[in-house]
């Protein structure tokens, strides 16, 4: 099968069946790597690392990267660009259609007490899910869990530089509540470079 056609088909499938965010697409990507020769398992870890550390939704980044690799192996840089764009398009197409349908349904049942009650249960639960995500980010940004496990020394658990930056940024954002996230992210990147974090 033509590489571009296969790309679109596979990423459409991922968009349709991967529920729960970017990392849910991983098992699908491994399946693709097993099935076709244009995606190599050895480049997967590199692709995941790049997708996680560049801006944008992780799932979208992986689709673009994977599409570029596949298209490149077929037709050089131009093929890579086409592959990246096509895979991304195929990935988001099913969810756009589904979300529009869900929006229409929700609109119709806007005044139903059943839907209202469902959301009353959902909102605090989603807050809990995001708090858990926050804990994960904090752990990877400010704690050295590996170092702590090896040494069993509590003073090794904290990445002091990161922790100080965390406290300063947190106090700043509590003081200036309307500050735009971009003005937190960019200075943090600069501080990271200056202090070799």
């Amino acid at each position: 099968m033509n590489v571009f056609l296969a790309l679109m088909l596979e990423f459409f499938k991922i968009g349709l069946f991967a529920i729960g965010g970017g990392l849910a697409t991983l098992p699908f990507l491994y399946e693709i790597a097993n099935k076709y020769d244009w995606l190599d398992v050895s480049v997967m870890s590199d692709m995941i690392a790049v997708s996680e550390s560049t801006p944008g939704p992780i799932g979208v980044n992986m689709a673009t990267y994977c599409g570029y690799n596949a298209g490149f192996s077929e037709a050089g840089v131009a093929g890579g660009i086409a592959g990246g764009i096509l895979s991304t398009f195929a990935l988001v197409l099913p969810s756009v259609i589904i979300v529009i349908i869900v929006s229409k349904v929700l609109e119709r049942f806007k005044n139903s007490t059943l839907v209202d009650n469902a959301f009353k249960g959902l909102r605090p639960a989603v807050c809990g899910l995001i708090a858990a995500a926050c804990y994960d980010v904090f752990k990877s940004a400010c704690l050295e869990t590996e170092l702590f496990k090896e040494s069993d020394n509590l003073s090794k658990l904290f990445d002091i530089k990161a922790l100080i930056l965390f406290v300063i940024l947190f106090l700043l954002t509590r003081k200036f509540k309307k500050i735009h996230p971009i003005f937190i992210i960019i200075p943090a990147a600069i501080v990271g470079i200056l202090f070799k974090m």
Partner: peptide, 14 residues
């Protein structure tokens, strides 16, 4: 280094 700094910012924002 920049990504490590950004990570801290993201933790604060979230």
């Amino acid at each position: 280094y920049a990504l490590n700094g950004i990570n801290v910012a993201v933790a604060v924002l979230v």
